[in-house]
Design a protein around this nucleic acid. Structure first.
Length: 393
DNA sequence: GTTAGACCTCT
DNA sequence: GAGGTCTAA
């Protein structure tokens, strides 16, 4: 009898970095639950890092790697049956195509051409940035996306990321545990919790987990959604994809903790509304750089009116795929990811303690890169759902 | 309809 | 002050 996890094996899709760059699309503030690891055994021209996360329907861990010419993917399953079904039916391949919108919008480069022609002033100057290459808007799950962006207000990416991982670990059982591809420890993956898995008195719990005042927003929004959709919140939210912007915006803004900006984020990133340009302070600053930006909007505190006019200004520049252009501009404007450093306390002489930074050694590149997912060794797998809520230490 | 403060928490 | 929003004037 085999034991989990069951990898469906690596497959690949021919895809250029200009059409999709994982590193510029996954960790840039649209999605927060991807794990990112260097690959210990890699060779020039082959992938150097792996992105992975738990994905539902069926439950599995999706792993992604990328070379200049191909996108590699595999699903790692807690049971053999689903892994075999994936092999037969290409479940993860379909998921990749849907998530990155490769079928719906196959030619990202054509969009870049269009934005360059429309807006040489802003887009033209930014797109030369390395971080502006291959930025795609992801087609995410609405339920997860909604919670993520309620959590995002007044927070930075690293903090949003840690809060959402904490959320998943607390309310969703471990799915599968895999060795990290950088050979540094292992990761236990959890699906994003379903609404029904959340305890009734959620606010106090979330507060203790560090959500702050957003805790009450999440509890209240959950309650509102339960009133509208009963037990079918996720399916209900998915149906909002088929409705027009104004209708959906009205419903989203009715939820506590969801204002105009969060609503626009959710509609852009999971409800097929590619023209929407969410205006946060960052994007507002980008817009203000444009020579033609109305001076009466400059240095004004954000208000509904300033929001509307700024959004309209950018929409005029960027056109029907304006939300995608915003994603490029946003990603390119993020600070360079800090090189990982370890802060080591070194004891010197008698009792003087100094802090010293040590550059983390980059993984040695081996000449062989295995495409077999059998490297993913089981450490611990539990598929039993517990009612108990685990709190982070 | 518009505009201050407050709000959790971490840097 | 930060990838805002809520509430009360």
């Amino acid at each position: 009898m085999s034991r989990p996890p069951f990898p469906s094996g690596w497959s690949s899709i021919p895809l250029s970095l200009k059409n999709l760059t994982l590193a510029n699309s996954l960790p840039v503030g649209q999605s927060f639950l991807w794990h990112r690891h260097a690959i210990a055994s890699s060779t020039p021209g082959c992938p150097t890092e792996e992105f992975s996360r738990a994905v539902d329907n069926p439950p599995r861990v999706v792993c992604l790697r990328q070379s200049p010419s191909h996108l590699y993917y595999t699903g790692v399953y807690p049971n053999e049956h689903d892994a075999l079904a994936d092999l037969r039916r290409g479940i993860t391949k379909d998921w990749v195509n849907d998530y990155f919108q490769l079928k719906a919008h196959p030619e990202l480069e054509k969009m870049y051409d269009d934005w360059r022609a429309r807006d040489p002033e802003l887009f033209g100057k930014v797109e030369v940035n390395k971080r502006a290459v291959g930025v795609r808007v992801l087609r995410q799950d609405p339920w997860e996306c909604l919670i993520a962006f309620i959590t995002s207000t007044n927070n930075h990416i690293p903090r949003i990321t840690s809060l959402l991982h904490r959320f998943s670990q607390s309310f969703s059982p471990p799915l599968v545990t895999l060795h990290n591809p950088d050979n540094d420890g292992e990761t236990t993956y959890h699906l994003f919790p379903t609404p029904t898995a959340l305890p009734t008195k959620l606010e106090a719990l979330l507060r203790s987990m560090g959500f702050g005042y957003r805790a009450s927003f999440i509890e209240s929004s959950l309650q509102t959604l339960e009133e509208e959709f009963k037990e079918e919140i996720e399916a209900g939210l998915l149906r909002w994809r088929n409705q027009d912007v104004d209708t959906v915006r009205e419903k989203l803004v009715a939820l506590k903790g969801v204002g105009r900006k969060v609503a626009d984020c959710v509609m852009l990133m999971c409800m097929d509304k590619p023209s929407l340009i969410p205006i946060d302070t960052h994007v507002a600053a980008i817009a203000a750089r444009h020579p033609a930006f109305p001076s009466r909007l400059r240095n004004k505190p954000m208000s509904k009116q300033v929001y509307d006019e700024t959004q309209q200004f950018l929409l005029d520049r960027w056109g029907p795929m304006g939300g995608w252009c915003q994603a490029v501009m946003f990603a390119a404007d993020l600070p360079e990811p800090k090189p990982k450093v370890k802060v080591v306390k070194t004891k010197v002489n008698t009792s003087v303690t100094v802090k010293r930074k040590l550059e983390e050694v980059s993984p040695t590149l081996n000449l062989k890169r295995t495409r077999s997912a059998t490297r993913l060794e089981l450490k611990q797998t539990r598929t039993i759902v517990t009612d108990e809520v685990k709190m982070e230490e």
